[in-house]
């Protein structure tokens, strides 16, 4: 009998939770919460592309303190929140205190590091936002590859199973 639930199938389920997207699709969100992990020209290109598609888009940035003045200079109308260290779910509390933002329609995690696409902190922030409301989740690696996560819950479950099997094999 064909094994439908082996390695390839688990990979397929996990991958199906993430699809490539484009600026046009992201710009359907009227308000976006954006974690800017890296302070690069690529970030500017990415934000400019979003604003070109949707000039009225409301973006709130969360970035390292050194980047905040630069973002304020670039995007005067968009609030920027300084956050030192790792981006954990704590950023949402800070955001609530400092900026009046109605429930964002989208959450965008911008990172130059491809490995961060599966960053646990990112996943936790995304899951919490989705619990609170209908938030679309996006991620970018180096600003050129754009992804949308369709089912963070299933995605996290799949990865957990994948990791557990890997650990089990160590003890087999």
């Amino acid at each position: 009998m064909e094994n439908l639930y082996g390695y390839d199938e688990l990979c397929r389920i996990i991958e199906s939770c993430v699809t490539e997207t484009d600026y046009k699709s992201i710009s359907e969100c009227k308000s976006l919460l954006m974690v800017a992990v890296n302070e690069e020209v690529r970030l500017k290109r990415c934000v400019d592309s979003l604003l070109k598609e949707s000039p009225g888009m409301q973006i709130v940035f969360i970035a390292q303190p050194s980047m905040v003045p630069v973002l304020k200079q670039w995007y005067e109308a968009c609030p920027s929140i300084a956050w030192k260290g790792k981006y954990t779910v704590e950023v949402l509390k800070e955001l609530g205190d400092e900026v009046r933002l109605s429930q964002p329609e989208g959450f965008f995690y911008f990172s130059e590091q491809p490995v961060n696409m599966r960053d646990e902190n990112f996943m936790e922030i995304a899951a919490l936002l989705q619990q609170q409301g209908d938030v679309r989740v996006f991620c970018s690696t180096i600003g050129e590859d754009l992804y949308e996560y369709h089912n963070i819950h299933l995605y996290c479950q799949g990865i957990r199973i994948y990791n557990e099997i890997n650990k089990m094999i160590d003890y087999m």
């Binding site: 390839d8 996990i14 996943m123 990865i159």
Partner: peptide, 8 residues
């Protein structure tokens, strides 16, 4: 196929 999971 490969899932680069969160472990470093």
């Amino acid at each position: 196929p490969f899932v680069p999971a969160t472990d470093r």
